[in-house]
C-alpha cells in the first residue's frame, strides 16, 4: 500500500508550466492548487489571471478562470465578485501588471474595499518581456532598461514601490502580509498567509493582500539557487517580511 507524503494537487491539469526553471510563480501556483484542494474551492472559486509570465496559468487549473487585460485584474474581479458574492475570487498579479500597468485598478479596488483576495508576485523585474526595469526594481539592480554599471538610479526612475505597505494604509484592505518562497520553511509560511487571506474572503470581511517575493533566475541572470540567496541578501532589506496589517479582528 502507498502512503503519500506529497502528491501533485488534484486541481492541476497535466499541462507543463511555461515558467523557466526555478521560477517562484511555479511554487506559488502550486501552493494555490494545494489550498484549492484543501479548502474545496474547485467548484466555488474563480481565478483571475493577469498579463505576464503567469498569463497562461488558466490552463494549469481545472477550474473557472478569467484572463484580464494589462493590470485590469482587480477591475474584472470586482465585476465577478459583485455579480456573484458567493464565489471565492482570487486575483493573481505580477509586479509589472499590478504596480505599473494596473496601479489605478488595485488602488481603487482597495479604496472600495472589494471583498476578494489579491496575490501579488514581486520579482523586481518584468519577467516575460525580457528583464526590463519594473517599479519594484531595487536601486542599483541592473535590468535591460537600467544597464550596468549604475543599474536603477533615483534621478532617473525614483524609488522601489512597497505595495504591501501602501495598501495597508487603506481602510478597505483588512489584511496585508509580505512573504517569500526561498526556503522550505518560508514556503510553508507563504501557504499559511495565502490560506488566511482566502479564509478572510470566505468570511466576507474585505480585501486581503499577500505580496510574495519571488525568484526570477532568468531575469536576474543568476543560477536558480543563487537567486534564492539574492532574495535574502538584497530583496528582504528593501521589502521586509511579515504581517503589515491585520484588521480581521476589528472587522468583526
Amino acid at each position: 500500500m502507498r502512503k503519500y507524503v506529497y502528491k501533485r494537487p488534484e486541481v492541476f491539469t497535466d499541462a507543463i508550466t511555461t515558467y523557466c526553471g526555478g521560477c517562484g510563480h511555479g511554487i506559488v501556483n502550486k501552493l494555490m492548487a494545494e489550498l484549492i484542494d484543501e479548502m474545496g474551492l474547485q467548484e466555488n472559486g474563480i481565478l483571475v489571471w493577469p498579463i505576464g509570465c503567469s498569463c497562461l496559468s488558466d490552463r494549469y487549473y481545472d477550474m473557472d478562470a478569467y484572463m484580464a487585460l494589462h493590470g485590469r485584474a482587480p477591475a474584472a474581479a470586482t465585476g465577478i465578485k459583485r455579480a456573484d458574492p458567493s464565489k471565492c475570487v482570487i486575483v493573481y498579479q505580477g509586479d509589472g501588471d499590478l504596480v505599473s500597468e494596473g496601479m489605478a485598478e488595485i488602488m481603487h479596488a482597495g479604496i472600495r474595499g472589494e471583498k476578494f483576495t489579491v496575490i501579488f508576485i514581486n520579482n523586481a523585474i518584468y519577467g516575460m518581456t525580457g528583464a526590463q526595469m519594473a517599479p519594484t526594481t531595487l536601486l542599483g539592480q541592473t535590468a535591460t532598461t537600467a544597464p550596468a554599471p549604475l543599474g536603477r538610479i533615483v534621478d532617473n526612475s525614483g524609488y522601489p514601490v512597497k505595495m504591501a505597505e501602501i495598501l495597508a494604509e487603506l481602510p478597505g484592505v483588512i489584511y496585508s502580509e509580505r512573504v517569500t518562497v526561498n526556503s522550505p520553511q518560508r514556503i510553508i509560511a507563504c501557504k499559511k498567509a495565502l490560506k488566511k487571506a482566502i479564509q478572510l474572503q470566505l468570511d466576507g470581511k474585505g480585501m486581503s493582500f499577500v505580496e510574495v517575493l519571488s525568484p526570477c533566475p532568468t531575469g536576474w541572470k543568476m543560477a536558480p539557487t543563487k537567486a534564492l540567496d539574492w532574495i535574502d541578501d538584497e530583496m528582504t532589506k528593501v521589502y521586509p517580511l511579515g504581517v503589515i496589517k491585520d484588521a480581521s479582528k476589528e472587522a468583526e
Binding site: 500500500m1 502507498r2 502512503k3 503519500y4 507524503v5 506529497y6 502528491k7 501533485r8 494537487p9 492541476f12 507543463i16 508550466t17 515558467y19 526553471g21 526555478g22 521560477c23 517562484g24 510563480h25 511555479g26 511554487i27 502550486k30 492548487a33 522550505p184 514556503i187 510553508i188
Partner: peptide, 21 residues
C-alpha cells in the same frame, strides 16, 4: 526519510513522495 521537502520546493510539481509497504 520521506520528509517531502524536495516535493514541496519543486516549482514544477515534478516530485511525488510516498511510503510503500
Amino acid at each position: 526519510i520521506a520528509c517531502g521537502t524536495c516535493a514541496r520546493v519543486c516549482p514544477d510539481t515534478a516530485i511525488t513522495v510516498y511510503k510503500e509497504d
